[in-house]
Protein backbone atom coordinates (compact mmCIF):
# COMPACT_ATOMS: atom_id res chain seq x y z
CA UNK A 1 0.00 0.00 0.00
CA UNK A 2 1.43 3.37 -0.92
CA UNK A 3 1.71 5.99 1.78
CA UNK A 4 -0.90 8.20 0.09
CA UNK A 5 -3.44 5.39 0.15
CA UNK A 6 -2.59 4.60 3.78
CA UNK A 7 -3.29 8.21 4.73
CA UNK A 8 -6.55 8.18 2.80
CA UNK A 9 -7.61 5.03 4.66
CA UNK A 10 -6.68 6.56 8.00
CA UNK A 11 -8.81 9.61 7.20
CA UNK A 12 -11.71 7.58 5.85
CA UNK A 13 -11.62 5.48 9.01
CA UNK A 14 -11.76 8.63 11.10
CA UNK A 15 -14.74 9.89 9.10
CA UNK A 16 -16.60 6.62 9.66
CA UNK A 17 -15.84 6.74 13.36
CA UNK A 18 -17.22 10.27 13.41
CA UNK A 19 -20.42 9.12 11.66
CA UNK A 20 -20.85 6.50 14.36
CA UNK A 21 -19.96 8.73 17.33
CA UNK A 22 -22.17 11.57 16.15
CA UNK A 23 -25.04 9.07 15.71
CA UNK A 24 -25.50 10.18 12.10
CA UNK A 25 -25.15 6.57 11.04
CA UNK A 26 -28.15 5.82 13.22
CA UNK A 27 -30.65 8.59 12.70
CA UNK A 28 -30.23 9.31 9.00
CA UNK A 29 -31.01 5.70 7.98
CA UNK A 30 -33.82 5.77 10.52
CA UNK A 31 -35.41 8.75 8.77
CA UNK A 32 -35.16 6.93 5.45
CA UNK A 33 -36.67 3.75 6.88
CA UNK A 34 -39.55 5.74 8.35
CA UNK A 35 -40.15 7.55 5.06
CA UNK A 36 -39.94 4.24 3.21
CA UNK A 37 -42.45 2.49 5.44
CA UNK A 38 -44.86 5.41 5.61
CA UNK A 39 -45.55 5.47 1.88
CA UNK A 40 -47.01 1.94 1.43
CA UNK A 41 -48.68 2.04 4.83
CA UNK A 42 -50.39 5.35 4.24
CA UNK A 43 -51.47 4.30 0.74
CA UNK A 44 -52.94 1.11 2.18
CA UNK A 45 -54.89 2.88 4.88
CA UNK A 46 -55.83 5.92 2.77
CA UNK A 47 -59.55 5.03 2.47
CA UNK A 48 -59.75 4.45 6.20
CA UNK A 49 -57.92 7.70 6.95
CA UNK A 50 -60.22 9.69 4.69
CA UNK A 51 -63.26 8.10 6.24
CA UNK A 52 -62.19 8.91 9.76
CA UNK A 53 -60.68 12.31 9.19
CA UNK A 54 -62.57 13.86 6.29
CA UNK A 55 -65.80 15.79 6.86
CA UNK A 56 -67.69 13.41 4.64
CA UNK A 57 -71.49 13.26 4.92
CA UNK A 58 -72.72 10.08 6.54
CA UNK A 59 -73.22 7.31 4.06
CA UNK A 60 -70.88 8.60 1.35
CA UNK A 61 -68.99 5.82 -0.31
CA UNK A 62 -65.29 6.28 -0.94
CA UNK A 63 -63.86 4.26 -3.72
CA UNK A 64 -60.12 4.63 -4.22
CA UNK A 65 -58.43 2.16 -6.51
CA UNK A 66 -55.44 0.55 -4.80
CA UNK A 67 -52.28 1.73 -6.62
CA UNK A 68 -49.84 -0.72 -8.10
CA UNK A 69 -46.87 -1.72 -6.01
CA UNK A 70 -44.48 -0.20 -8.54
CA UNK A 71 -46.24 3.16 -8.27
CA UNK A 72 -45.91 3.13 -4.51
CA UNK A 73 -42.18 2.55 -4.84
CA UNK A 74 -41.89 5.45 -7.26
CA UNK A 75 -43.74 7.64 -4.75
CA UNK A 76 -41.34 6.48 -2.04
CA UNK A 77 -38.48 7.72 -4.17
CA UNK A 78 -40.22 11.09 -4.44
CA UNK A 79 -40.37 11.23 -0.66
CA UNK A 80 -36.65 10.50 -0.52
CA UNK A 81 -36.12 13.29 -3.04
CA UNK A 82 -37.62 15.90 -0.74
CA UNK A 83 -37.32 15.03 2.94
CA UNK A 84 -34.59 12.43 2.50
CA UNK A 85 -32.41 14.72 0.44
CA UNK A 86 -32.93 17.53 2.93
CA UNK A 87 -31.77 15.32 5.80
CA UNK A 88 -28.72 14.11 3.89
CA UNK A 89 -27.68 17.61 2.87
CA UNK A 90 -28.17 18.89 6.40
CA UNK A 91 -26.05 16.03 7.73
CA UNK A 92 -23.29 16.81 5.24
CA UNK A 93 -23.40 20.58 5.04
CA UNK A 94 -20.71 21.25 7.62
CA UNK A 95 -18.47 18.40 6.64
CA UNK A 96 -15.59 20.63 5.53
CA UNK A 97 -16.59 24.13 6.61
CA UNK A 98 -17.19 23.20 10.25
CA UNK A 99 -13.73 21.70 10.54
CA UNK A 100 -12.21 24.72 8.86
CA UNK A 101 -14.11 27.17 11.01
CA UNK A 102 -13.03 25.43 14.21
CA UNK A 103 -9.41 25.15 13.07
CA UNK A 104 -9.36 21.35 13.25
CA UNK A 105 -8.76 21.19 9.51
CA UNK A 106 -5.64 23.36 9.76
CA UNK A 107 -4.10 20.91 12.19
CA UNK A 108 -4.76 18.05 9.77
CA UNK A 109 -3.82 19.81 6.54
CA UNK A 110 -0.50 20.94 7.99
CA UNK A 111 0.48 17.28 8.08
CA UNK A 112 1.90 15.73 4.93
CA UNK A 113 -1.51 14.83 3.51
CA UNK A 114 -3.00 15.95 0.23
CA UNK A 115 -6.15 18.03 0.16
CA UNK A 116 -7.55 15.60 -2.38
CA UNK A 117 -7.36 12.62 -0.03
CA UNK A 118 -8.95 14.81 2.62
CA UNK A 119 -11.87 15.56 0.28
CA UNK A 120 -11.97 11.92 -0.84
CA UNK A 121 -12.27 10.69 2.73
CA UNK A 122 -15.16 13.09 3.38
CA UNK A 123 -16.80 11.95 0.17
CA UNK A 124 -16.41 8.31 1.16
CA UNK A 125 -18.25 8.82 4.42
CA UNK A 126 -21.03 10.82 2.75
CA UNK A 127 -21.44 8.11 0.11
CA UNK A 128 -21.66 5.44 2.75
CA UNK A 129 -24.25 7.43 4.64
CA UNK A 130 -26.33 8.12 1.52
CA UNK A 131 -26.23 4.63 0.03
CA UNK A 132 -26.75 2.93 3.37
CA UNK A 133 -29.73 5.09 4.24
CA UNK A 134 -31.25 4.85 0.78
CA UNK A 135 -30.87 1.08 0.66
CA UNK A 136 -32.30 0.59 4.14
CA UNK A 137 -35.24 2.91 3.43
CA UNK A 138 -35.99 1.56 -0.04
CA UNK A 139 -35.79 -2.08 0.97
CA UNK A 140 -38.14 -1.54 3.89
CA UNK A 141 -40.52 0.25 1.56
CA UNK A 142 -40.29 -2.67 -0.86
CA UNK A 143 -41.01 -5.13 1.93
CA UNK A 144 -44.10 -3.28 3.17
CA UNK A 145 -45.32 -2.70 -0.38
CA UNK A 146 -45.15 -6.39 -1.13
CA UNK A 147 -46.93 -7.16 2.14
CA UNK A 148 -49.73 -4.64 1.82
CA UNK A 149 -50.11 -3.74 -1.84
CA UNK A 150 -48.45 -6.04 -4.29
CA UNK A 151 -45.24 -7.62 -5.47
CA UNK A 152 -42.66 -5.61 -7.42
CA UNK A 153 -39.88 -7.10 -9.52
CA UNK A 154 -36.50 -7.14 -7.80
CA UNK A 155 -34.87 -5.92 -11.01
CA UNK A 156 -36.98 -2.75 -11.02
CA UNK A 157 -36.16 -2.10 -7.38
CA UNK A 158 -32.46 -2.62 -7.94
CA UNK A 159 -32.37 -0.51 -11.12
CA UNK A 160 -34.23 2.41 -9.61
CA UNK A 161 -32.16 2.15 -6.41
CA UNK A 162 -28.91 2.45 -8.35
CA UNK A 163 -30.08 5.38 -10.45
CA UNK A 164 -31.54 7.16 -7.47
CA UNK A 165 -28.41 6.52 -5.45
CA UNK A 166 -26.41 8.21 -8.19
CA UNK A 167 -28.70 11.23 -7.96
CA UNK A 168 -28.19 11.46 -4.19
CA UNK A 169 -24.45 11.03 -4.68
CA UNK A 170 -24.49 13.96 -7.09
CA UNK A 171 -26.40 16.13 -4.62
CA UNK A 172 -23.90 15.25 -1.90
CA UNK A 173 -20.95 16.03 -4.17
CA UNK A 174 -22.49 19.47 -4.59
CA UNK A 175 -22.90 19.74 -0.82
CA UNK A 176 -19.25 18.83 -0.32
CA UNK A 177 -18.18 21.36 -2.93
CA UNK A 178 -20.21 24.17 -1.42
CA UNK A 179 -19.09 23.18 2.06
CA UNK A 180 -15.52 23.71 0.86
CA UNK A 181 -16.17 26.93 -1.02
CA UNK A 182 -18.38 28.62 1.57
CA UNK A 183 -17.63 29.29 5.20
CA UNK A 184 -21.18 28.97 6.41
CA UNK A 185 -22.71 25.47 6.63
CA UNK A 186 -26.22 26.92 6.18
CA UNK A 187 -25.18 28.68 2.98
CA UNK A 188 -23.65 25.42 1.73
CA UNK A 189 -26.88 23.51 2.41
CA UNK A 190 -28.96 26.21 0.78
CA UNK A 191 -26.76 26.30 -2.33
CA UNK A 192 -26.66 22.53 -2.70
CA UNK A 193 -30.42 22.15 -2.27
CA UNK A 194 -31.05 25.12 -4.56
CA UNK A 195 -28.78 23.77 -7.28
CA UNK A 196 -30.32 20.29 -7.08
CA UNK A 197 -33.84 21.72 -7.18
CA UNK A 198 -32.98 23.98 -10.11
CA UNK A 199 -31.49 21.06 -12.06
CA UNK A 200 -34.51 18.88 -11.34
CA UNK A 201 -36.85 21.65 -12.39
CA UNK A 202 -34.90 22.26 -15.58
CA UNK A 203 -35.00 18.59 -16.49
CA UNK A 204 -38.73 18.47 -15.68
CA UNK A 205 -39.67 21.54 -17.71
CA UNK A 206 -37.48 20.85 -20.72
CA UNK A 207 -37.20 17.04 -20.85
CA UNK A 208 -35.97 17.14 -24.46
CA UNK A 209 -33.37 19.84 -24.18
CA UNK A 210 -32.17 19.21 -20.62
CA UNK A 211 -32.74 15.45 -20.38
CA UNK A 212 -29.04 14.72 -20.26
CA UNK A 213 -28.52 16.81 -17.11
CA UNK A 214 -28.06 15.12 -13.71
CA UNK A 215 -31.39 16.66 -12.71
CA UNK A 216 -33.27 14.18 -14.86
CA UNK A 217 -31.88 11.18 -12.94
CA UNK A 218 -34.58 11.24 -10.28
CA UNK A 219 -37.23 11.22 -13.04
CA UNK A 220 -35.52 8.25 -14.68
CA UNK A 221 -35.46 6.43 -11.33
CA UNK A 222 -39.25 6.91 -10.94
CA UNK A 223 -39.70 5.65 -14.51
CA UNK A 224 -37.62 2.55 -13.85
CA UNK A 225 -39.50 1.81 -10.64
CA UNK A 226 -42.97 2.20 -12.18
CA UNK A 227 -42.47 0.89 -15.72
CA UNK A 228 -39.23 -1.07 -15.67
CA UNK A 229 -37.22 1.08 -18.07
CA UNK A 230 -35.99 4.63 -18.23
CA UNK A 231 -37.71 5.05 -21.56
CA UNK A 232 -35.46 7.71 -22.97
CA UNK A 233 -32.37 7.74 -25.13
CA UNK A 234 -30.95 10.49 -22.96
CA UNK A 235 -30.62 8.17 -19.99
CA UNK A 236 -27.07 7.12 -20.84
CA UNK A 237 -25.99 10.71 -21.41
CA UNK A 238 -27.46 11.69 -18.12
CA UNK A 239 -25.51 8.95 -16.31
CA UNK A 240 -22.25 9.99 -17.93
CA UNK A 241 -22.90 13.66 -17.30
CA UNK A 242 -23.61 13.02 -13.63
CA UNK A 243 -20.46 10.96 -13.16
CA UNK A 244 -18.43 13.72 -14.79
CA UNK A 245 -20.12 16.38 -12.67
CA UNK A 246 -19.35 14.45 -9.47
CA UNK A 247 -15.71 14.03 -10.43
CA UNK A 248 -15.52 17.71 -11.38
CA UNK A 249 -17.05 18.85 -8.08
CA UNK A 250 -14.63 16.76 -6.04
CA UNK A 251 -11.61 17.96 -7.98
CA UNK A 252 -12.74 21.55 -7.69
CA UNK A 253 -13.28 21.11 -3.93
CA UNK A 254 -9.80 19.62 -3.53
CA UNK A 255 -8.23 22.34 -5.61
CA UNK A 256 -9.93 25.14 -3.72
CA UNK A 257 -8.99 23.60 -0.39
CA UNK A 258 -5.39 23.31 -1.50
CA UNK A 259 -5.30 26.95 -2.45
CA UNK A 260 -6.95 28.28 0.70
CA UNK A 261 -5.79 25.82 3.32
CA UNK A 262 -4.85 28.81 5.44
CA UNK A 263 -8.43 29.71 6.15
CA UNK A 264 -9.33 28.33 9.54
Amino acid sequence: MTSGAARYFAMAQKELLELVRSFKLLWVPLVFVLLGIMQPVSMYYMPLILEKAGNMPVGSVIEIPMPLGAEVLAQTLQQFGTLGLLVLVLAGMGTVSAERNSGAAALILVKPVSSFSYIASKWTSLLLLAWGSLTAGYLSSWYYTSLLIGEVDASRVLGSLLVYGLWLSFALALTLLFSTLLRSPAAAAFSALGASAALSLLAGVFPKQAGWLPGSLSGFAYQIASSGSAGSDRFGWSLACTAAAIAGSLLLAGQSLKRSASVD
Binding site: A10, K14, L17, E18, S22, G103, L107
Partner: peptide
Protein backbone atom coordinates in the same frame (compact mmCIF):
# COMPACT_ATOMS: atom_id res chain seq x y z
CA UNK B 1 -1.31 26.74 16.43
CA UNK B 2 -2.22 29.27 19.07
CA UNK B 3 -5.52 27.68 20.01
CA UNK B 4 -5.43 24.17 18.60
CA UNK B 5 -8.77 22.65 17.79
CA UNK B 6 -9.11 18.90 17.81
CA UNK B 7 -12.00 16.56 17.21
CA UNK B 8 -13.79 16.70 20.52
CA UNK B 9 -15.42 13.32 20.02
CA UNK B 10 -12.05 11.57 19.81
CA UNK B 11 -9.99 10.48 22.78
CA UNK B 12 -6.52 11.92 23.26
CA UNK B 13 -4.90 8.64 22.33
CA UNK B 14 -7.00 8.24 19.20
CA UNK B 15 -6.06 11.72 18.06
CA UNK B 16 -2.33 11.22 18.42
CA UNK B 17 -2.55 7.83 16.72
CA UNK B 18 -4.50 9.48 13.91
CA UNK B 19 -1.89 12.23 13.61
CA UNK B 20 0.83 9.59 13.45
CA UNK B 21 -0.92 7.69 10.70
CA UNK B 22 -1.40 10.90 8.72
CA UNK B 23 2.34 11.37 8.93
Amino acid sequence: PQAPSFYNWMTGLEYVVYAGRLC
